[in-house]
């Protein structure tokens, strides 16, 4: 690791200010990606802005949605009785991220801001018609994720919370990469009164995406048979040493079926 300095921000505007006054400052949330990157000397920020003291933790019931603070740890979401009651699939997803150590450090905001193509959370934000609340504005999920490791966040923008709409029914099915246990394919299916949203992570060359064919099939007939009727294309899916695009396409179908029938 190169030597760097750490600034502890008291609120999100102080964090933004600290970024502005550094040359190449980085927000430090849970550090589950950033710290290993620094240890490998793959990044050399002149300043780390620790936002753990910004008061961004906690889960709130907002009626038709659940709002979760950006610095809320995966373990807290997994164990929240409020989340378990309102959107059990979201609690399940959080409880399946990484291992116990990661879940006790890693945060919702960190995961969403990093937009790792194999991360679990982006699929939930997408499928649950989520809104990303920053210090500047509210960004809908469909506008937030801009491709692999890319988001709509601007330089002077910090995620404060994410809201998830309460579905009638939802389920997240992950096929983990056997080595890293990140999603090799993860499918989040959420059924709302006005239709079904299906978000896929781990598979797309551009990161998380909504699968419109599966959504329309399931919106008219929420069943495994409806999924079987959809030919999942491998176009735009990743091929790597762990899985080819057509195997990932197969897994999208299988994980969707399992999510629907669970």
């Amino acid at each position: 690791m190169y030597s760097t300095k750490i600034v502890k921000a008291e609120n999100s505007s102080a964090a933004v200010q600290a970024i502005g006054s550094s040359k190449e400052g980085k927000i430090l949330a849970g550090g589950m990606t950033l710290i290993p990157t620094l240890k490998q000397r793959l990044a050399n920020p002149d300043c780390l802005i620790d936002i753990s003291g910004c008061g961004l933790e906690g889960v709130e019931d907002k009626g038709s949605s659940v709002r979760i603070g950006a610095m809320t740890k995966h373990a807290a979401v997994a164990e929240s009785s409020l989340v378990a009651k309102a959107i059990p699939a979201l609690a399940d997803l959080a409880g399946g991220i990484g291992d116990r150590q990661v879940r006790n450090r890693g945060t919702l905001g960190g995961s969403v801001a990093n937009n790792d193509p194999a991360a679990c959370y982006p699929s939930a934000v997408m499928a649950l018609d989520g809104t990303v609340h920053t210090n500047k504005r509210d960004i809908s999920a469909d506008d937030f994720f801009k491709g692999m490791f890319e988001t709509a966040l601007e330089e002077d923008e910090v995620i404060e919370a994410v809201s998830f709409k309460k579905p009638e029914k939802a389920c997240y099915m992950k096929f983990p990469n056997p080595a890293s246990r990140y999603a090799m394919v993860g499918v989040f299916v959420a059924k709302f009164s006005d239709g079904v949203r299906v978000a896929v992570t781990g598979a797309g060359e551009e990161g998380v995406f909504r699968h419109s064919d599966l959504e329309s099939a399931l919106s008219s007939n929420f069943s495994e048979e409806a999924v079987s009727g959809v030919e999942v294309s491998s176009d735009g899916l990743m091929s790597d040493i762990h899985a080819s695009a057509d195997y990932r396409a197969n897994l999208i179908g299988e994980m969707t079926k399992r999510a629907v029938s669970s």
Partner: peptide
């Protein structure tokens, strides 16, 4: 070596 860490080499 593409499998040079536990992210890619499965123990």
């Amino acid at each position: 070596l593409l499998t040079a860490s536990y992210m890619d080499y499965c123990m």
